[in-house]
């Protein structure tokens, strides 16, 4: 292996070892608002939240009975309106 290649390998190894124990980079305050907005869902991802969801099946029964309508129940392990 040439000296140049050996040196490149060694440099990469040192970088890898050096970065292994470092904490995550602090968040740049100038980037804070941008990051916050980036992580949150835009309207196109969150349109489903605008449907009139009830989170109580019993309340859904009462409303459906009063209005003469069937119920659509979305039931998941992990709340479908939350972490699922």
């Amino acid at each position: 292996m040439s000296f140049k290649i050996r040196w490149s390998v060694l440099a990469a190894l040192i970088t890898a070892i050096g970065s292994a124990g470092l904490a995550a980079e602090p968040i740049d305050t100038a980037q804070f608002e941008k990051l916050h907005a980036l992580i949150k869902p835009p309207e196109s991802e969150a349109f489903w939240t605008t449907l009139p969801w009830l989170t109580s099946l019993w309340e859904a029964r009462q409303q459906a009975a009063a209005e003469g309508k069937p119920i659509l129940l979305w039931e998941m392990d992990g709340h479908p309106l939350g972490c699922t």
Binding site: S44, F47, L51, P52, L57, Q63, A64
Partner: peptide
């Protein structure tokens, strides 16, 4: 739930509920 056909049916013809099983 961004599909216009689904949204229309659900808003007009169903009561919608969501629960954690």
């Amino acid at each position: 739930f961004a599909d216009a056909r689904i949204v229309k049916i659900l808003k007009t013809q169903f009561v919608t509920a969501a629960c954690d099983d």
